[in-house]
């Protein structure tokens, strides 16, 4: 049981915590939506039951090897993303495997699962899958712009791509968070996050009323269980990433929960209040104001913060 073994165990713990947390967040999101609509909403354990049920389905079909591997890619992508992010600042073991690469690795590893899932869903042969994926990709390359601008602003500000160092630079009081030092970049990134989380008004990928339900139309049973697990872990990973980059990271789990919950509420509340965009509208949206804000953030970092 060397340090590597210990690290693996801690990573597993992180995974479990983040998975559970992510599922709870999902339930919380649904509950909030329900309350906005005047309903009681699902019980908080509902996502857990759903996952168990999906894993417990008796039959499944497969359209081919890529279809079979699609959810595997997806979940690998989700877990990998989390594994490459240091979750708790200052903790050797909860920094997971962030030694393997910096922020750029995380940003590109996000695509790993999406790409694999896209290919798998495509092999399903259902026409809605490619339509949904095409929408998703289009939206992705649009929201990547403000997000990339924000990331670059951070890289300028802290002169590093290492997430640990970025968090370290934000220590020492609430005012040293990026949120306060470069609010433009953070706003751009949060707007991008709305697209990333795919809640309304950016839910054009799943869009149950238009292309029920997009890419995962053919996925079911344990495949669906994996996609749901990934959704939880991946959401947690993204939130932790945002927290690390913009909100000073966390030195322990309660702080982590508090901060990520707050970040999550942004997209939940926006999602509860807006109807859905059309695909071309979301592209235009992200390339308009969020991009402008992002550029302002970048220039602010470049000419004011340095």
């Amino acid at each position: 049981m060397g340090p590597l073994g210990l690290k693996i165990i801690y990573t597993l713990i992180t995974l479990v915590i983040c998975g559970v947390y992510g599922l709870l967040l999902g339930a919380f999101m649904a509950k909030t939506m329900a309350r906005v609509q005047g309903r009681i909403g699902i019980p908080l354990h509902q996502p857990f039951v759903d996952i168990i049920k999906n894993y417990g389905k008796r039959t499944a079909i497969s359209h081919g090897i890529m279809f079979y591997l699609g959810p595997v890619f997806r979940l690998t992508g989700g877990i990998g993303t989390l594994v490459f992010i240091p979750v708790i600042f200052g903790s050797e073991y909860f920094s997971n495997f962030s030694v393997a690469g910096d922020l750029l690795l995380v940003m590109y590893f996000i695509f790993f699962g999406q790409l694999g899932m896209a290919l798998g869903a495509s092999e399903g042969g259902h026409p809605y899958s490619p339509i949904g994926i095409a929408r998703g990709l289009a939206q992705m390359c649009a929201f990547e712009v403000p997000f990339a601008l924000a990331i670059i602003a951070i890289a300028i500000q802290y002169n590093t791509f290492s997430i640990t160092e970025i968090v370290a630079a934000q220590q020492g009081g609430i005012l040293s968070w990026t949120f306060f030092t470069n609010p433009f970049a953070v706003v751009a990134a949060l707007l991008a996050m709305l697209g990333m989380n795919m809640y309304p008004p950016f839910s054009i990928v799943l869009a149950p009323q238009e292309i029920p339900i997009g890419p995962p139309t053919e996925y079911h049973s344990a495949y669906l269980g994996m996609l749901q697990s990934n959704r939880a872990i991946f959401a947690a990973a993204k939130l932790v990433l945002f927290m690390n980059l913009f909100f000073g990271g966390a030195t322990n789990f309660p702080v982590l929960v508090l901060k990520t919950w707050a970040i999550y509420m942004c997209s939940v509340l926006v999602g509860a209040a807006f109807p859905r965009f059309r695909p071309e509208e979301t592209i235009r949206f992200f390339l308009r104001w969020p991009t402008v804000i992002g550029i302002v953030g970048l220039l602010f970092a470049k000419y004011y913060l340095i």
């Binding site: 329900a34 309903r39 009681i40 699902i42 019980p43 509902q46 049920k53 339900i213 996925y219 079911h220």
Partner: peptide
């Protein structure tokens, strides 16, 4: 699905595809 009856609280929800429905 509306606020008056709200089947979600009983763990019942709508799915758009038969693959995922029970």
């Amino acid at each position: 699905t509306t606020s008056r009856f709200d089947m979600y609280q009983y763990g019942i929800q709508m799915r758009a595809t038969p693959r995922q429905s029970s």
